[in-house]
């Protein structure tokens, strides 16, 4: 049986497109996290009322 040959990208265009999409998602997540941290002091905790 012949060993599995290494998968090679068929087309770099799609790879770049996926990389761009991934970068956009990551940048968006970072931006949202920084924004939440700067405005509310936490990322995941829901701010409660002072009362």
């Amino acid at each position: 049986m012949r060993p599995n040959p290494r998968r090679i990208a068929v087309n770099d265009l799609y790879t770049a497109l996926l990389a761009l999409a991934t970068f956009a998602v990551a940048a968006t997540a970072i931006f949202v996290a920084v924004k939440c941290l700067s405005d509310y002091g936490t990322i995941f905790k829901v701010v409660e009322s002072a009362r």
Partner: peptide, 16 residues
């Protein structure tokens, strides 16, 4: 791949 990339970029832009 193309549709998911475009959608994710659009969604990230909307979120930002």
């Amino acid at each position: 791949v193309v549709l998911m990339s475009l959608f994710s970029i659009f969604l990230c832009g909307a979120v930002v």
